[in-house]
Each structure stands twice: as structure tokens, then as C-alpha cells.
Write a protein that binds this DNA or RNA. Structure first.
Lengths: 344, 344
DNA sequence: TTGAAAGCGCTAACAT
DNA sequence: ATGTTAGCGCTTTCAA
């Protein structure tokens, strides 16, 4: 077992208190004592017992994230990158990251309640906000620190970072309209997800601004996986009145759509334009490379984490609501033209 | 703040000790007292303070995993699925999952040391073992519980689960040889990774068994990303003596290789066969679908987690070393033949 | 059947 | 500049 303050105190012949203060560099300890204490501490390889510190402080130095997952086959590039951003930032600021996974719904909410009351974490990061988000409602009421990645409908009295999904999707409609597309299919996401909502808004409004009417029969929605993208695009492209372009609300579905088009013998970028949203690493290296909207997931992870820890520490935030403007990445899946590699 | 044992004790008019024992269902507490204590506890919404329990027990009820990551653009489907497996299993068994990310090397090892000594977790799960793995050496010496996913060279006196990568890659060479390929390129992984080692062995030995000699000039190695796969395959395919098939040591690089081939105007599955290893969800839904080797990552996550917790609890394991046989998934990227969808 | 007391390792208020 | 005392919330002897 690791040495304790008491061990050091005995060796040095001082009280535990003095040792504690010496190690924490209080200025009411004589330099000699400090030096001596430090020496012995090093010698014994002292490391503070974090459990004791936490009990004393009544804080866990840990932030939590509960990933909303459905099936076991859970593999969204978005999450691993986001997690890395949060995790690295948390480590930098001296916090641990507690990760759980729960299917959205009752079980999920119970997990929040438990973790709040235990208390197992000092604050939460919420991902994939929903139109009405119980998690946010609950944490707000409980006055428990959290930062969300994403907004909610009809309530923004909480701290969040979000991308401007509406703007992002308008970049797509502008781009497609410019290429001359008139009939554009849309691969929508689950109705209760806020990001799908904004992107859909952007799509509809973007078309309108271009003087194009949105044909609702070309709207189909799926569960954000490639599989869904494949199936939905296949249906769209098999219609007699098939669209000349398909915009997907995320990259994964767009990748599925590309496969579907190719399986039908279509040349993506030429015969049909396909676009995504997210710019996951795969987007650049698939064939053809995917035109999409970039949002800096890793940086958002860092940002959200930093804001949460500030909140936990009661430091003031410059900005409690942040909305980021994403940018368009034009690639071959829409233009058919080969683009030179973006970065070495 | 949550109610404490003391609060309950005051209300009931009993000592804290009695209340503690009542709630833990000791049999030396009268039924009436138990009932009364339980009633008041419910009324106050009592939840034990986990920090105090942990200090007392000197255990954290938490297992740790430190993900080896390089750049910020970290997005490996393998990890998110593996994490989900571990996380869900841990939750089921009453454990928390502490996730960190560190670049392999000194910083990483320091993180292990710190977490061991704090003590922040009760045990570790190690991923992506290396030929000589400092992490394993350190934890073994410290006699700290851990379970690894993967083996090590020259030392198997520790608990692990691994896939039989050599066998898996032989499935690939057999398959390619059967299709008539004689010159096969190999996209290798980093030299210090154990899984890359076994898969390479399987490739070399598999070829030998087929009476084919491995042309070392067709071996190129990269960092496991699609980007690397793209670049390496591009080089291979541009040679005058280009191979007729390319086996990649993981799916991500294989996907990159597919893009490279397609960019060169080759029909994958017809003009060149390409295979992967891992069977990530994308493999089935890319174009053409990728022939690969399947290993049940999610289940392995569960398994590893269960074994670790048993070890922590000093329960006996039926098997301390487990090696799983992966299976071949034949798809269009090698055969050129369309395969009916595997599952609905 | 119950309670008093000690202790997990640390920090902090107060006194000296 | 240092020590005494108390306390974080819980569990666990040991005694009654």
C-alpha cells in the first residue's frame, strides 16, 4: 500500500496537519520543514489517496457522459472523436471521465438520477439533444452542472455548444442548386433528435431560398446508419421520378447511399450527386470522396469539457451559449470532379 | 444534499451503527427496527454516499481503460464498439468505467502508474497489446488486476482474451489462393503491435501452405487509417509488377485501398481483389462490400470486462487465457460476385 | 438486539 | 510555525 500522511508525519516527527500543509505549499510552514517533508514524501513515494481527498472535498473530480446507444453494434465515428476531445481536455484539467452507455429512455434517465445522487460525478456532458430532452430537464431542476452539445426546442436556459445545422445544410442546398439540381432527395434522421431537426429546417428553407419547392415525397428517414442510408437511397433511386441528388443528414447514411447508387450502376458525382454532413474521417477517403459539411468534433469536445469544468468550479463563462458555423467541403460525390487532396 | 445515515438515525432514535446494519440487512437487527429504518430511509430518499463507502472499503468500484491514441483525429470504429461492450457489462455488475486517452509511450505509462497508486480504479483493461508491453509488465509487477485483449511476445503469464489472428489471416490467404491469385500485396500495421504480428504471420505462413512464396517487396506498412491504406495501395497498384490482390491487416486500411483502386479506374473484385480484417459495420455497407474476417468485438468487450471483475473480486476464472477463432466473411471486394444481404 | 468507539486518509478551523 | 481537534459518511470491531 501507498504511504500516508501519517507515515510521513511519524518519520519527520511533525503532525499530520503540518505535513499536509507542507505538501500543499502553504506559506505558514517553514522552508526547512517543507524541504524535509518533501524529501521524505519522495522517499516513501507518497501519493495522496484520492478517495480520502474526495470524501473530504465532497467532490469526485470526475465528469460523466452517458452515451445514448441502441443496439450492441454501436459504432459511430462521431462518438469516438468526441470522447477523445473530452477525455484529453479533462485529463489536462485534472478530471476523470466516467463513461456509460444506455439506450435512450427510462433506463437512461435512471442512470442520470443515480449518478447525480451517489454522487458519482461532478457534472455531465449531454450529447445528441432531443426536442424535449428529459436529461436536460432533470439536470436543470436538480441544479446539477452540465453542458450540452446541442440545443433543445423552446428552452435555452442552459449552457450549450451547438453547430449551426440549419446554416450548414443551407450550404448544401446552395451548392446543389448551383450544380443545377432541381429534385433533391433527403435522408432524414430520427424525428426526436434536435440536430436532425435543424438540418431538415436548413434543407427546406435552403431550397425555398433557391426558389425550389421541397417535394415531401422525397423525404425519407432512417436511423443514421449506413445500412439505413443504403436502403433509403435504394428506394429513392428506384422510383420512376428519382431525384438527381440526395442530401443525407449525416455522413454515415450518405456512405450507405453511395453504395446503393453504385450497386444500381450509377456513377456518383455524375449520374447522381450525394452529400453528407459531419465530415467524419472516412468522408475524405471513400470513393468518390464525399461532399459534406465539416464540424470540428474533437474541438467541440474540448470546448464542452472546458465549459463544464469552469461551471463546476464556479468560474464565470464568457459565453454560455455558443453556436458554431460549420463549413462546406466540396468533393467528388457531388461535382464528379476530382479534387486535389486537401492535406498532405 | 442527500440524507445521511446520521439523519436517519436521529429520526428513528437509533444509532448510526444500527441504521447501517438495518439497511444492509444484517440479521442481528430486529424486524421492527429494520422496517422503521427502511421507511424513514425511503422517506428521506436516502442514497449511500459512494465516496464514503469507497474510502472505507478502499476500493473504487471502477475499472479503467486507457485508449492508445495518436493524433486528435481519433476515430476507430473498433474502439467505440469495444467500449460499449465493456461499459454495458460493467454497469450490469455495478462497476463504473473510467476512460482516458493517451498516446502510447512514457505519458501513457505514467497515467497507469498514477491511476494505480491514487488509487483511481480497481483494475484495468488493456487494449492493442504490443510485442513488449510496458503496461503489462508494469501491472504484473505491481500485482494490480488487469485483463488484456491481446497477447504479448514471450510471456503469457497473465490473463487475456485474444483472437487467433494467424488463423484468421490464413482464411484470407486460402480464399485468395483459391481465387487463383499468385501475387498478393499486404498492407501491414505498425511493427510493435501484437495483432499486426499475428496477422502477418498468418499471411506469410498461409501463403507458404498454399505453395506461394511471399514477395517481401509487396509488403508495405501503415498506421491503420484509411488514409494510409489509400496511399499504400496506390503505390502498390502503380507498380509495373502490381499484385492482383491486396490483403490489408485491418478494415480501415482496406477501405482506403478500395478507394485507391477505384481512383485508378480499377473494378474492385474484378480487376483487383481487396480484403480486410475486423468486420467493422462499414465493411458490409461499403462499395463493393468488403471481404473480411469477423471478430465479435462487442462480445469480447463484455467477456474481458467480466473476467476483470471476477479477478478483482477474487473469484476464480474457468479459463485465464482465451483465444477465439474468427470467421471469414466473403463479399464482393474479393469475388466480384454480389452476395445476398447477410441479415435483413 | 443495540450502541459506543475507532478508523479509512485527508483537510480545515482554531489555538498556541 | 506548528499542533489539537473535529469532521467528511460509512463500516466494523467490541462491549453491553
Amino acid at each position: 500500500m501507498s504511504a500516508t500522511l501519517k507515515d510521513i508525519a511519524n518519520r519527520v516527527g511533525k503532525s499530520v496537519t503540518t505535513v499536509s500543509r507542507a505538501l500543499n505549499d502553504f506559506d505558514d510552514v517553514s522552508p526547512e520543514t517543507k524541504a524535509e517533508v518533501q524529501r521524505v514524501a519522495d522517499e516513501l513515494g507518497y501519493i495522496p489517496n484520492i478517495l480520502a481527498q474526495r470524501l473530504q472535498k465532497q467532490s469526485t473530480d470526475t465528469i460523466g457522459i452517458i452515451l445514448p446507444t441502441f443496439g450492441p453494434r454501436f459504432s459511430d465515428p462521431f462518438f469516438s472523436e468526441f470522447l477523445a476531445g473530452i477525455g484529453n481536455q479533462a485529463a489536462k484539467l485534472g478530471y476523470d471521465l466516467l463513461v456509460s452507455t444506455r439506450p435512450p429512455g427510462k433506463i437512461e434517465l435512471e442512470a442520470y438520477q443515480q449518478q447525480v445522487r451517489s454522487p458519482r460525478v461532478d457534472g455531465f456532458i449531454i450529447v445528441r439533444t432531443r426536442l424535449q430532452d428529459q436529461r436536460i430537464t432533470f439536470l436543470s431542476r436538480a441544479d446539477f452542472p452540465f453542458v450540452a452539445f446541442g440545443r433543445m426546442l423552446d428552452d435555452d436556459r442552459y449552457i450549450y455548444v451547438d453547430e449551426d445545422g440549419e446554416y450548414g445544410m443551407k450550404l448544401i442546398t446552395d451548392h446543389l442548386a448551383e450544380l443545377g439540381h432541381q429534385r433533391i432527395g433527403y435522408l432524414d434522421g430520427p424525428a426526436d433528435l434536435m440536430f436532425a431537426y435543424y438540418r431538415r429546417e436548413g434543407f427546406v428553407n435552403g431550397l425555398a431560398e433557391q426558389g425550389l419547392s421541397a417535394d415531401r415525397t422525397l423525404f425519407v428517414s432512417g436511423d443514421l446508419t449506413q445500412k439505413a442510408g443504403y436502403k433509403l437511397a435504394n428506394e429513392l433511386l428506384n422510383r420512376p421520378d428519382a431525384p438527381s441528388a440526395i442530401a443525407a443528414c449525416n455522413d454515415l447514411m450518405a456512405l450507405g447511399a453511395i453504395s446503393a447508387a453504385q450497386d444500381l450502376g450509377l456513377e456518383v458525382g455524375e449520374d447522381v450527386a450525394i452529400t453528407g454532413f459531419d465530415n467524419i474521417p472516412l468522408a475524405e477517403h471513400c470513393h468518390p470522396p464525399l461532399t459534406t459539411v465539416h464540424q470540428p468534433i474533437y474541438q467541440i469536445g474540448e470546448m464542452v469539457c472546458k465549459m463544464l469544468i469552469k461551471q463546476i468550479r464556479n468560474e464565470s463563462l464568457e459565453q454560455e451559449q455558443i453556436i458554431l458555423r460549420p463549413s462546406l467541403m466540396v468533393r467528388q460525390s457531388s461535382t464528379g470532379k476530382k479534387v486535389l487532396s486537401e492535406n498532405s
